[in-house]
Write a protein that binds this DNA or RNA. Sequence first.
DNA 1: GTACTGTTTAATAACTCTATTAAATATGCT
DNA 2: AGCATATTTAATAGAGTTATTAAACAGTAC
Lengths: 208, 208
Amino acid sequence: MEPTKIELEIMAAAKQLFLEKGFAATSTTDIARKAGCNQALIHYYYRTKENLFEKIYLAEVNNTLSIISTILDEPIEGLSIEEIIDRLIDTYFLMLRDNPKVPFFLVQELIINSERRESMRQLFILNPLRQEAYEKYKRLVYHLHEMGKITDIDPFNLLISVISLVATTFLSLPLYADLLQRTLAEQETYLSERKQEIKCMLISRLRP
Amino acid sequence: MEPTKIELEIMAAAKQLFLEKGFAATSTTDIARKAGCNQALIHYYYRTKENLFEKIYLAEVNNTLSIISTILDEPIEGLSIEEIIDRLIDTYFLMLRDNPKVPFFLVQELIINSERRESMRQLFILNPLRQEAYEKYKRLVYHLHEMGKITDIDPFNLLISVISLVATTFLSLPLYADLLQRTLAEQETYLSERKQEIKCMLISRLRP
DNA sequence: GTACTGTTTAATAACTCTATTAAATATGCT
DNA sequence: AGCATATTTAATAGAGTTATTAAACAGTAC
């Protein structure tokens, strides 16, 4: 059951288009054209557009979760809170630099397609990887608090704040670039300034 | 050139559907059904779906900007920074409580439809209301800094952070509700906890 | 009442989209 | 090679989409 070469092409094309334009605005004809194959082939492999989408969505969820899990595995023993935040945010930014559209994509379809939410719930919330990563994260926060390195804060709320700040940076990047007509160099500056600001904000919030 | 009763119905229906499902997933037939009129009538009034969409989009942009403008007009003389943030964030939350889907809607279509970005640029960036509100906001930040009430911070970066934190709260609300299967009361708690956390974060960041 | 205007609808053209089917290739096996 | 299986394509059904057109309807002016 090895995926064939063209199957990978279809997946890659579909991923690109779904990330870019969303489910509704992407047609199987678009995907076929991008993948360089006949439109019927997509249905041969996946039967429905919905199936293909769910496969891509699940892959993105899992990929994101495992990267986050890796981030949380970084050794932090003996580091100051400034250094810890520095490392975590740097890694998070690196991860999103490669996949800037992923966070938006993940929520977009959930928000838009409320019928899809139940199946997404199973892919995401009930995902063992997610549960594992979240537990790991909570232990980290409690541990840091016990060691007196950070103030008392609800881990869930902190997580939402971090995701908000970092994901929105990448979400806003194309708007920043196009609407304000910024060059690539300026976009880089924007990213690093946002990173700095986010670290600064988190450190002042977390300082005991 | 008074808008007729049914024209208002069409606008209301279109707004609801576009906000809910986005441009691509909403058909003029859907809109007509919701507005209780014939599908051709929509084209009689707006000629194209695109036109109708742009009208709604512009209305939302202007509405948002004027509300923000109002928020920034609140008198703050003599208040502590804690009180100022308290008021601004409270008002911002109130505004979004009535229109929780607006921020997502505004960026969604910009992100998805890159061809539309140029026309949106003209509706948004070059909008005099926006320029006015932004200038007002910058003056506020500089003023507060000069008075020694807040630390030295780039107003643009601060703005992005505030928008990120607040808008994402409402963006995540339906996911929080559905994915974690939370009751209405729990959603209320979530909102007020987020509000508290955001204020806390901003205050610790802004303290001189 | 009739003529004139603006509003609304039914009908439909012209597409596009998803999905299926049957036929055509390609690939591997003996 | 010859056969079986898997892959790929062309053709197309069937539904849904936007947009237009011509006809029906409603309201007003004379």
